[in-house]
Design a protein around this nucleic acid. Structure first.
Length: 415
RNA sequence: GGAGAGUUGGCAGAGUGGUCGAAUGCGGCGGUCUUGAAAACCGUUGUGGGAGCAAUCUCACCAGGGGUUCGAAUCCCUUACUCUCCGCCA
């Protein structure tokens, strides 16, 4: 959520930002009108309330006073309805405005305008015909899509034997690296969250159709632990010296993937349920630019340790997520498709989420309270990591070598 | 699932429908004292919205939402959460 004052004072810049994002700027214009009306009505009703407060006696009012107070109460009641309606209108509009991209974010009109920042690791060359991860997974007996579709439906998978163990090993490995090398605090969180939490990180109100909702409740299956880890601090005021906070969690994530029919139907790249290790930073506003680079390095280190070739892409304005002001995607190499595919997304949200979720800090000297900045990134998407390992470490005989760093975690060298 | 009790500021904890944004304690901040610190003492200390260049003025907020009333932290309804007892259960 953008501060209403900032919207009012910087409407020109904002309109430009919306254009760069490819979003509709009529939303902004509607907000400005509604906001103006609301403030005018607010001043009127505040004056009425002041009058009432002044007229209200300390004890029992006289019949005369009672009469004028009753009149006043009537007009306040009537006016209040109008004010509340206007406020609601303005705030519905404000909540739908996306974050403003930072000024150094490349301007673009589609994902084709994203900028490759860095390419790391050598793409493996194979002397044989490579298989896709799902072909490998099925032939090795470690991925079973038929069972999953019987159990549940499409876009689910059952992992078996060494595949299941490797997935578990990956989770442990990632969490160990982040807690031991990068100083994260590990937390166990529910995968079911309420509407307020989803609003806090920006999934609601606009993107409810991408989420699974539990019937007859206000509960949803969380699409990413970003929601849980950030809203852990909902309505909290930190002391400045408690920042930064770095937390991580491995959770199952759930997404409807509505509108992606026909996309990535094979394999485990796009599932309704997948495991992900998430990283969240809660930081002082002045630190967030630095922190984004740190966060990205933390995510990158997993790919480096696994010796998977990848590249870093900075998203252009058009491809930026709703809540984000700046995002780096990490894309891992998939030999069978001959492309890099997203495996992590690291974003700086500035105070966009902290305003929605009321996460603040108390400044050092003064008693001033201010919004923190929040950042998050995948460190990494576990299913996609498993898929990337299958493809990049495949051998001519269809077996797969276990990456060195995982050998301490599993009791086998190949699968 | 059934019965009951709660939810008040950073925390703990008072609060007969009007003078309550709210006692008191702790914590925080400033000061006195001290070579320095501790202790003691004195003072100060919530958040959000709106108007204004500003000083400042003003409105709202006692879990969320609704209601009664001229007036609600206080009464009523409702939702969420917490606790106790019973039942069930990994």
């Amino acid at each position: 959520m953008i501060d209403a004052k900032i919207i009012r004072d910087n409407s020109t810049d904002l309109r430009q930002a919306l254009v760069h994002r490819g979003s509709d700027s009529t939303l902004l214009d509607e907000f400005l009108v509604a906001d103006k009306k609301w403030r005018e009505a607010l001043q009127m009703i505040d004056a009425l309330k002041m009058k009432r407060n002044q007229l209200t006696p300390k004890g029992k009012p006289t019949p005369d006073q009672l009469l004028s107070l009753k009149e006043l109460a009537d007009s306040i009641k009537k006016e209040q309805e109008a004010v509340s309606a206007l406020e609601e209108t303005a705030s519905i509009l404000a909540r739908q405005l996306p974050n403003i991209p930072l000024s150094d974010v490349p301007v673009g009109s589609s994902e084709d305008d994203n900028v490759v920042i860095d390419t790391i690791g050598d793409v493996p060359s194979f002397s044989f015909q490579t298989q896709s991860h799902d072909e490998l997974g099925i032939s090795r007996g470690i991925l079973n899509f038929d069972q999953a579709s019987t159990l549940t439906g499409s876009r689910f998978v059952v992992g078996h034997d060494k595949g299941a163990q490797l997935e578990r090993a990956l989770i442990n490995f990632m969490l160990d690296v982040h807690t031991t090398n990068h100083g994260y605090k590990e937390v166990q969180v529910p995968v079911v969250v309420n509407s307020q939490s989803l609003f806090g990180t920006g999934q609601l109100p606009k993107f409810g159709s991408d989420l699974f909702k539990l019937e007859d409740t206000d509960y949803w299956l969380s699409p990413t632990a970003e929601v849980q880890l950030t809203n852990l601090f909902h309505d909290h005021i930190f002391q400045a010296d408690q920042l930064p906070i770095c937390v991580t969690a491995a959770t199952a994530c759930f997404r409807k993937e509505a509108g992606s029919y026909g996309k990535d139907v094979r394999g485990i790249i796009r599932q309704h349920q997948f495991n992900k290790v998430e990283l969240v930073h809660i930081v002082h506003p002045e630190e967030s630019h630095q922190e984004l680079l740190k966060l990205r390095q933390h995510a990158e280190s997993i790919l480096k340790l696994l010796k998977l070739p990848y590249r870093v892409v900075e998203l252009c304005t058009a491809d930026l997520g709703f809540s984000s002001a700046k995002t780096f995607d990490l894309e891992v190499w998939f030999p069978s498709q001959n492309v890099y595919r997203e495996i992590s997304s690291c974003s700086n949200f500035l105070d966009f989420q902290s305003r929605r979720s009321m996460i603040r800090y108390k400044q050092e000297n003064g008693a001033k309270v201010n919004y923190v900045h929040t950042l998050n990134g995948s460190g990494l998407a576990v299913g996609r990591t498993l898929a990337a390992i299958l493809e990049n470490y495949q051998q001519e005989d269809g077996s797969i070598i276990v990456p060195d760093v995982l050998k301490n975690y599993v009791r086998f060298d190949s699968l």
